[in-house]
Nucleic acid binder design. Sequence first.
DNA 1: TTGACTCGGACAACATATGTCCGAGTAAGG
DNA 2: CCTTACTCGGACATATGTTGTCCGAGTCAA
Lengths: 158, 158
Amino acid sequence: MSGGVEAALHCCVVLTAATGPVPAARLAQLHGVSATYLAKQLQALSRADLVQSVQGKSGGYVLTRPPEDITVLDVVEAVEGTQSTFVCTEIRQRGPLASPPEACTAPCAIARTMAVADRAWRAALREVSIADLGRLVGGDYDTDVLGKVGDWLVSAEP
Amino acid sequence: MSGGVEAALHCCVVLTAATGPVPAARLAQLHGVSATYLAKQLQALSRADLVQSVQGKSGGYVLTRPPEDITVLDVVEAVEGTQSTFVCTEIRQRGPLASPPEACTAPCAIARTMAVADRAWRAALREVSIADLGRLVGGDYDTDVLGKVGDWLVSAEP
DNA sequence: TTGACTCGGACAACATATGTCCGAGTAAGG
DNA sequence: CCTTACTCGGACATATGTTGTCCGAGTCAA
């Protein structure tokens, strides 16, 4: 899986604690990652309408919906794409014993099995929202991490 | 996901219908794929002890266990590796607000969420055996495909 | 003993993911 | 109203992993 997913998820959680638009460069600085590469992931989130970009001097990114309505699956599919991890190349239609195309209207047994697993994976990711993630990280440490992040975002030098 | 998984699964199902060792070149010819590349996937299956290689003039590959005892997950992990698709790079330990390492003994909330989904995916793949796949493909078509494959394996020219 | 056929790991070519850059556009401030 | 500085957005190189290929070591049959 692409590593950009992790950064995108962290950004969404951080945007939960923000009051106004947050520039991509600020998010990169906070996470200690490459600013230009993070921008690419944020563009993917923007294309998927999970975040909205506001341009101009004090612009940045804002969540378009309340974090309860954004699932982890939404973020993963925005960055990685919606297609299944397994792609069937129709091996059964090749070679000397190839099945005729008219007998291959339904996916083969292997593709069906992989599709079931893929749906289970996506269902698990759909169960968790960005708001859930924020609550979970809050419970992980005794200090209020998300509050500190919010303070840093407004106090940090440009 | 690597495309070699599909070929490896097809090979395992075909080996179910074989009576003796089947060379990699024969399997490649049957499936209409590159012989040298398929060999690489079969080597992975061999390292995982799912198939056994017998060398010499009339050698090839044989399943080491009855197909009921080989799960689809076994094949996937043999080819793709056992590590999770998501790898946490510990972003929380970077940047100006980095969490101290002593507070990061447990995986972060994002990694936990992805791990839950990964386990669900693997559980689904563990539920299906190679024998199940053989029965499923048999039911897909009116003709006995697996029987034809067995006949072809013994009758094909070297 | 011969011989030919098998696997096994080492070697290139391609695709995708990663990382970088500069231009178009916009809102703030004077 | 204009300037200006800051923002995003897509087009351009690099690195890593997958795909594809090759030839040598080993082994069983004849």
